[in-house]
Design a protein around this nucleic acid. Structure first.
Lengths: 256, 256
DNA sequence: TAAAGCAATTTATGCTAATAAATATAATAA
DNA sequence: TTATTATATTTATTAGCATAAATTGCTTTA
């Protein structure tokens, strides 16, 4: 079979030209989220093309998360901030065929989380600290049902996500949220049932409690150090759990 | 003005349903890049909708980089790997309104590059090493014209990009490429003209030469350590250059 | 035989017109 | 005042038709 992906289309499509024009126009006019684009009819006239072509261009902008489109009066295409979920989804697509392994994900996490913790420490508000305390509290009760175990894993991860959201570095923040989302998908429904998970969660709880203290005392260095230890511990436990999983599946591919 | 972004549309659009269906179908059937999707007519029949709706769905998949569409026999929508440039562009959109600062970008770089260097070290082929040597050689001649200076900065960054491409961890690889792309855009046309840039480039050249030795000896630990020093040095120089830039612009916003 | 050119086929691309659905605003009725 | 209804605006979807692009295979030519 011939490789069909390397072919370069001869002529740029009309809708893509419109997308580029709109993007330039938005950048030149320093337009802000909430500002409205012309409606479909006006765009048709402005670009001298049909409705279908305009709609393809708008669809493209919508998929990229750059505009949000609604029907009705005062509807139409409105400039938007790209929501985290959108960017996250698109990066997932990129990784679809690479399927990062558990150890790879945890390795990245170990790199970024200590810095995130350090950066977030002086930026956490009292409200943030209260939220963190609540998340820790949710992990302190002894889980009975499977749903309770799941809820505790979510709470553990939300602890890290909140820190990422507060670290003040947009890229680091994104990576922090993303890597914890990856772990959520990777871990929750696969390993939470294993008996070894219990020991893992206890260790996590201990680290989170210590981290909370460091946050309350605004001790960024302690935060960084504790988080590093926490991450190394998590990497260790993950390796153990993956080993157990492989045994369960009797040598089959652990991540089919 | 009312906030129009938080509104949730009543009914999911038909084209988005189709996108989801196709995605599920692709995942379920373990379809690979190069595999063809049904053509527009077949999709119309399968989803019992009009051509316009199918086209919007395909456009969505195309914008996400999941398919590549061509006309002609054996054309149509073909499953594709999301190219790096696509994922990168979409993440840039996400960061558009946050505009990461130079120090933020360099901070992330300092976090990831040492690990990338260590991971890449045992994976570099002889060809890779030759390429790296060539990139270093391009930086050794004394730059005369502005274009030559630009070319050397590109070569410096390509050195890091190649390492990222070889590190074997898809996420880390993406972040490494992305952060160097950010630096490319941030730095090239703004700071390369400053006299202080020359000293910066000499320091970089020195580190790259030492790194090359570590790569040739397959010494991952040395690579990691050297890269860490290299990054700390780069962060330092960047701060200096930003200071100089601020002086040049007489207190105005250095990144308008 | 091999290369170049031509035609047929397949496929997306683009246009028009008409109708349906969603929603904000204004008018109306309780 | 409050709830309901009407109406205007805008996107969403449909249908059909014409056009353009690209590949395949055939034919001609050297």
């Amino acid at each position: 079979m011939k490789d069909q992906n390397l072919r370069i289309p001869k002529r740029v499509k009309r809708s893509d030209q419109i997308v580029d024009s709109v993007k330039r126009w938005v950048a030149l006019n320093r337009m802000q989220p909430g500002d409205r684009l012309p409606n479909e009819r006006e765009l048709m006239e402005q670009f001298e093309c049909s409705k279908g072509t305009v709609r393809e261009a708008l669809k493209s902008l919508e998929v990229q998360g750059l505009v949000s489109i609604r029907t009705g009066p005062n509807g139409g295409a409105v400039l938007a901030r790209v929501p985290y979920g959108k960017a996250s989804e698109l990066l997932r697509n990129f990784l679809h065929f690479e399927q990062p392994s558990g150890p790879e994900i945890y390795a990245l996490r170990t790199l970024v989380e200590p810095e995130i913790a350090a950066l977030a420490t002086p930026r956490l508000t009292d409200e943030d600290l209260a939220t963190l305390r609540e998340l820790v509290a949710r992990c302190e009760v002894d889980p009975v049902t499977f749903d309770e175990r799941i809820d505790q894993r979510i709470a553990e991860l939300d602890f890290h996500v909140l820190l990422a959201q507060r670290c003040g570095n947009a890229m680091l923040s994104f990576i922090g949220r993303f890597v914890n989302d990856m772990i959520r998908d990777l871990v929750i429904f696969k390993k939470s049932a294993l008996p070894e998970q219990r020991e893992f969660s206890c260790a996590n709880l201990g680290f989170h409690k210590q981290l909370l203290e460091a946050f309350e005392q605004k001790d960024a260095q302690a935060s960084r150090h504790l988080m590093k230890e926490h991450m190394l511990s998590a990497e260790h436990f993950n390796r153990e759990l993956e080993g157990q999983l492989n045994q369960h599946f009797l040598g089959g591919d652990p991540r089919p």
